[in-house]
Design a protein around this nucleic acid. Structure first.
Length: 426
DNA sequence: ACTCCACCGGAATACTTGGCGT
DNA sequence: ACGCCAAGTATTCCGGTGGAGT
């Protein structure tokens, strides 16, 4: 058993080598800054709509759209806590419950979560009316009844924030929303208002028109950030996150520019900055330079590529493997016909169903869609029409991922090497 | 039990240009 | 020299099937 000295020594160099970060947590998605740059108009709009609740009136329901990383959740959370603060100063009762529908995605769990949020930090209720809805078991209408009782018992205005509401609608339909929009008619002493947050504009199509009109009494659209705005956001966080003078001048503008040409996604920009810092830190540099940002960009891209390939269905991986083999041979460009021929040799050796060409071309275009390969249809006159494809990033990572798939490697994938392919073509 | 969706293959049709017939 | 043909898939349309969810 190693003594304490040795155990500490193992980690020591990683702990002391930290010249870059002062507080890395600030760069994470979960961090909520005190100030939200360039979102003043949105904050004011939301505040204006919610303001009536301080006079114990029901605010309009709001539907908020915007791409990922445009500050929707941050703005709503910010206004929400401000509203709760203001209400406690003014002696009115306003409460905000935030629900992320990505994880809470059934009607039952949404209701239970609302109920839980109601009684959570409410000291008055916790004394007597802490009737907690069990995580499962009750019929839905009983849950509704219980929720109404709780609302009536506490009174005041409740604002329900349904984050990623499109996920909820997709998974369990609009029944939940329908019920929630109607709940006000059954309440006397209390009022309920809803805020829906979505990054998918098309989710309205799945909604009952009545629900939609009720839910979207007010609609807000959050525009993406442009590069200068992203600069401000990054600068604000970098001041806290990094030690003084470790960022070279071009770093933040470059992160902002790269993220802006993507989607104006602030999360993406923060990731870029954080990973840049991590790389510089690991390389034991004292400053973060644009070089590190470039590396960070490549790393993030390659990580998502690896992630993407790893989750591919087995058949797609076999198709991809066929292409890798072709790529290893002299030709960097290959046709769907060649891929198909190799695939048809590999697949049976893997105990897999052999798909037809029809299906393979689908998988190929899917791979193209995902950006793993590039394709181009060409007509070769007498020699027919085909699709050419090629890799444009280096294939080592892809090799690694494919080889690490247990179902493939179990069948001796590595036996099918280049010589094997060449023999195939005779 | 029933619906929905992802996956699959067959048949028909589309596409394009090098080669071949004239 | 000119124009039509044919190769070889791509692409579209559609219908079947098994499994997951309700």
């Amino acid at each position: 058993m190693p003594d304490g000295q040795e155990s500490i020594g193992l980690f020591k160099k990683y702990l002391t080598g930290n010249n870059i970060f002062r507080n890395r947590e600030v760069l994470r998605h979960s961090y909520r800054p005190q100030i939200l740059p360039h979102r003043r108009p949105q904050i004011d709009q939301v505040a204006a709509i919610l303001a009536p609740s301080l006079k114990n009136e029901t605010p309009s329901n709001i539907l908020i759209y915007g791409k990922t990383g445009t500050g929707k959740t941050a703005v709503v959370r910010y206004v929400g806590t401000e509203l709760e603060n203001a209400s406690s100063h003014m002696g009115t009762l306003c409460k905000v419950v935030h629900i992320n529908c990505e994880s809470i995605d059934t009607q039952y769990r949404v209701l239970a979560q609302i109920s839980k949020g109601l009684s959570d930090d409410d000291e008055i209720a916790s004394d007597r009316a802490r009737s907690v809805i069990p995580m499962t078991g009750w019929p839905t209408d009983q849950v509704y009844q219980e929720l109404k009782n709780q609302l009536e018992a506490t009174g005041g205005v409740l604002v329900i924030v349904l984050d990623e509401i499109d996920k909820l609608v997709k998974k369990s339909g609009d029944e939940t929303l329908y019920n929630l929009t109607r709940i006000n008619t059954d309440l006397k002493a209390s009022k309920v208002s809803m805020i829906g947050i979505s990054n998918d504009l098309s989710f309205k199509d799945f909604l009952d028109p009545r629900v939609l009109s009720s839910l979207s009494e007010e609609e807000l659209v959050f525009p993406p950030y442009n590069a200068p705005q992203l600069c401000d956001i990054l600068q604000q966080r970098a001041d806290i996150a990094f030690n003084d003078n470790v960022l070279e001048d071009g770093v933040i503008p470059l992160c902002a520019a790269l993220a802006a040409q993507e989607h104006g996604d602030a999360r993406r920009a923060l990731d870029l900055l954080r990973v840049s810092g991590e790389i510089a830190d690991r390389e034991e540099n004292t400053r973060v330079s644009e070089k590190h940002v470039k590396k960070a960009q490549a790393k993030i891209e390659s990580d998502s590529m690896v992630e993407c390939i790893a989750t591919l269905p087995t058949q797609s991986k076999v198709v991809l493997y066929s292409m890798l083999l072709l790529d290893q041979m002299d030709q960097n460009i290959f046709t769907s016909g060649e891929v198909g021929r190799i695939y048809k040799e590999i697949a049976p050796a893997m105990d897999l169903d052999v798909l037809t060409n029809r299906r393979i071309t689908d998988l190929i275009s899917e791979l193209n869609m995902l950006g793993v390969i590039n394709t181009r249809v060409v007509s070769r006159g007498r020699y027919g029409r085909t699709k050419e494809m090629w890799f444009d990033s280096n294939t080592n990572k892809i090799w690694d991922v494919i080889r690490s798939d247990p179902r493939l490697s179990a069948h001796g994938l590595d036996k099918m090497d280049i010589a094997w392919v060449k023999a195939l073509f005779r």
